[in-house]
């Protein structure tokens, strides 16, 4: 899209959208939101970038290599946090029994493994949104 107004506004807006997405992911256990909604927000900002600046520039920002790492990394974060529970408590994905500090209720550092799992889910959802959009839009060239 070759429109100077749209391009300038998009450049200004995208950092705020991404910051808000990260805020939603990190505050998933103390306020409405969480990994899914925050990841969708973050992915939407990259989809906006693709729509405005074209898929070639977007591929430089979010290449296949990054997408592979993010896809597998999201699940691996989730699984490795779950495996910690096997060694410390004997159960997969156990929170309090595995010895995660629960912290003070309502503060950012609370909830044991919940924020960590939310980060994994957020990475996974964000990269899934972008990868699916890129795959569908790049289909003509594959």
């Amino acid at each position: 899209m070759d429109d100077i107004i749209v391009k300038s506004i998009t450049r200004i807006i995208i950092p705020f959208v991404q910051l808000y997405g990260i805020f939603i992911i990190l505050h998933g256990h103390v306020s409405p939101g969480g990994g899914f909604s925050g990841g969708a927000l973050f992915g939407t900002s990259l989809i906006l970038y693709t729509l405005i600046f074209g898929v070639d520039k977007a591929q430089k920002k979010f290449s296949h290599r990054v997408s592979e790492i993010a896809e597998s990394g999201g699940i691996l974060i989730y699984l490795s946090i779950g495996v910690i529970g096997i060694f410390t408590a004997g159960y997969f994905l156990s929170n309090k029994a595995a010895g995660f500090p629960l912290g003070e209720a309502g503060s950012l550092l609370s909830g044991g493994m919940i924020p960590l799992l939310m980060i994994g889910v957020g990475i996974k959802v964000a990269s899934t949104m972008v990868t699916l959009f890129h795959t569908l839009i790049m289909e003509e060239r594959l």
Partner: peptide, 13 residues
């Protein structure tokens, strides 16, 4: 679970 958001605590615990 230590989280005040009940949905988050059900979802990830």
């Amino acid at each position: 679970t230590g989280a005040i958001n009940i949905i988050a605590s059900i979802l990830t615990d």
